[in-house]
Amino acid sequence: MPAPLTRPRATAIGFVAVLLWALLALLTVGSSPTPPLLLNTICFTIGGVIGLIWVQATNGWRALARVPLHVYVFGTVGLFGYHALYFSALRAAPAAEAGLIAYLWPLLIVLFSGLLPGERLRAGHFLGALLGFVGAACIITGGGVGFQAQYMPGYGLAFLCAVFWSSYSVGSRVLGAAPTATVAVFCLLSAAASGGLHLIFEETIWPAGALGWGAALMLGLGPVGLAFYVWDIGVKRGDIQMLGTSSYAAPLLSTLILVVAGIADPSWALALAALLITGGAVLAARASASEPTSEAAVVASDPVSPQPAPPVSPQSGR
């Protein structure tokens, strides 16, 4: 019998997504020169198949059939919209500036979470997320950034990218009764949309050799696959403010992985970012710890369980 899914355990499961996203840069480099929309198609297809296998194994098709259409529309727009806007922003503006603006999404998650029923946004949550953003800025920009007026359309796309993912994450909390297995449908519909746009805008260049296909497979299994399922559990059942703040660990861990792999060099900016992001996470953790919570189980389920989770009262913490 699976262990009961308490709020701390759901938060820990959600943080697995952050760890998986730390591999995104390394695996994306390994999958080169596959264009982004085609890579999206491959990875989202793999991610969707992961969920469908679980649905088949648990006989969860009936549960998926009961999910309202607007939930599938919401999830697909969130997943596909974020990635489409992100890649478009990187093409329309310098990568450092666009990436920095796009990485406003953890801070926006913390801010938007204050609008959720039963949630209370504390100063520690906001300050922690702000420190995390400054730390991420040190990594993404390398200590130097220069915004230029001619790239305003790209900056706007990057900001919309951040709004899309933060809205998707917080909105998933509102749709908490929808089973996490719906993410499989989100992924497959996003794969179809990516594939259609790929045929229109990109040249078809498949991953090169065993290394390229291995990287693409690992992307689909991890950062662009399993990560979406565990993130869904975390934002629905865990401490969403803590998850938002701790998400700034992703660019830090990603850069550390690139350093270990010999693709990037260590720097003082990286060390400063580590201190800022760690400090921000500590502030957010202390703010969350000061809230009265219950250790009662929220729901007993697997990460992609098709069984709907019952609504949780504010008194139970989630």
Rank of each mutant, 00 (worst) to 15 (best):
Pro4Ile: 02
Pro4Asp: 00
Thr6Asn: 09
Pro8Trp: 02
Pro8Tyr: 05
Ala12Gly: 12
Gly14Asp: 00
Trp21Arg: 05
Thr34Gln: 09
Pro35His: 08
Leu39His: 04
Asn40Ala: 13
Thr41Phe: 13
Phe44Gly: 07
Val49Phe: 13
Gln56Thr: 13
Ala57Ser: 13
Ala57Thr: 10
Thr58Cys: 10
Asn59Glu: 15
Asn59Trp: 14
Arg62Lys: 14
Leu64Gly: 09
Leu64Lys: 03
Ala65Tyr: 05
His70Lys: 08
Ala84Lys: 07
Ala84Pro: 06
Ala89Ile: 03
Ala95Cys: 03
Ala96Lys: 12
Leu108Pro: 03
Leu111Tyr: 03
Leu115Glu: 01
Leu116Thr: 00
Phe126Cys: 12
Phe133Met: 06
Ala137Pro: 01
Ile140His: 07
Ile140Trp: 03
Gly142Lys: 09
Tyr155Gly: 06
Gly156His: 10
Leu160Gly: 11
Ala162Cys: 09
Trp165Met: 04
Trp165Asp: 03
Ser167Ile: 01
Ser169Trp: 05
Ser172Trp: 01
Leu175Gln: 11
Gly176Arg: 09
Val185His: 00
Phe186Glu: 01
Leu188Ser: 02
Leu189Gly: 10
Ser194Cys: 03
Ile200Val: 15
Phe201Met: 14
Phe201Ser: 13
Thr204Leu: 14
Ile205Leu: 13
Pro207His: 03
Gly209Val: 04
Ala210Arg: 11
Leu211Glu: 14
Trp213Thr: 09
Ala215Gly: 00
Gly222Asn: 09
Val224Ala: 15
Ala227Thr: 11
Phe228Ser: 08
Lys236Asn: 06
Leu243Pro: 03
Leu256Arg: 03
Val260Gly: 12
Ala261Thr: 06
Ala261Val: 00
Ile263Thr: 12
Ala271Arg: 05
Ala273Pro: 10
Ala284Pro: 10
Ser290Arg: 10
Thr293Asp: 06
Ala300Gln: 14
Ser301Tyr: 11
Gln307Leu: 15
Ala309Met: 12
Pro310Cys: 15
Pro314Gln: 07
Pro314Glu: 02
Gln315Ala: 15
Arg318Pro: 12
